[in-house]
Amino acid sequence: MMITTRQATANDADQMSEILSPILASWKSDRPSDAGHILRYYIEHPDSIKCTIAEDETGKVFGFQSLIIATDNKPYDVPNGWGIIGTYVRLDATRCGIGKHLFASSQEAAKQAGLKRIDATIGQTNETGLAYYEAMGFRTYRTSDTSVSKIYEMDAA
């Protein structure tokens, strides 16, 4: 299987929703995952730096990664000017290198945007997510009862 990455478009929202819905269900999360939410919160987010999808040669989307810049409208307690990243990969396609492809694209976008740090806030019980970000070079800088916040230092890249 050949995986390529590109900027997500409105046409990808349905497939992205098909990825996010079962992930959120597995977390027992009631966060929205419909295509309209995907469009607003990931593809067309006002603070977006880049929303990348990973697809195969047939156009099937296997994962997506959102990189936004923290502003006053940010979803987490992250300092303004940092990047905030979120990664979602089909549950049946984890550990296939898709996340590595996605992060390479986001890392380049972060560099072009002049980011110095990227935050990934992951649920305490999301062992796959915690391992993924650690493998990409993120390190824990803060924890709460429900989450672990990891930082990626661009200068160290």
Rank of each mutant, 00 (worst) to 15 (best):
E127Y: 09
S149G: 06
R90W: 01
T143G: 04
N80Q: 15
D47N: 13
L39W: 10
L24R: 10
N126F: 10
W27T: 05
G123S: 10
E108N: 11
T140F: 08
A13L: 06
K116H: 05
K111A: 10
G99P: 02
F103S: 01
N11A: 13
A13P: 00
T125K: 13
Y141L: 05
K150L: 14
A70E: 03
D145M: 11
K100R: 15
I151W: 14
E57D: 13
Q107E: 10
E134D: 12
Y141H: 10
T121R: 07
H37Q: 04
A157C: 08
A109Y: 04
I19T: 00
P32N: 05
L102N: 02
A104K: 15
D119A: 11
I38L: 03
T143N: 06
P79Q: 14
A110I: 02
F103V: 04
K50P: 00
K60D: 04
S144K: 08
D77K: 12
S66N: 12
N80I: 14
R139V: 13
L102I: 12
H101T: 03
M1A: 09
D30T: 14
W27C: 11
R90G: 00
S105E: 12
G97M: 12
S33C: 09
I68L: 09
E134C: 07
R40L: 10
I68A: 04
G36I: 04
D14T: 10
A35W: 06
A110F: 07
K28S: 15
G81Q: 13
P46K: 07
I43M: 05
E153N: 08
S144M: 08
T140I: 14
I3F: 09
I19L: 01
G97W: 07
S149V: 11
L130I: 15
T125Y: 09
T9P: 00
E55A: 13
T4V: 15
I23A: 01
Y76P: 00
A104W: 03
Y132C: 06
K111L: 10
Q124K: 14
T9D: 05
C96I: 03
S106G: 06
M154G: 01
Q107T: 03
K100G: 12
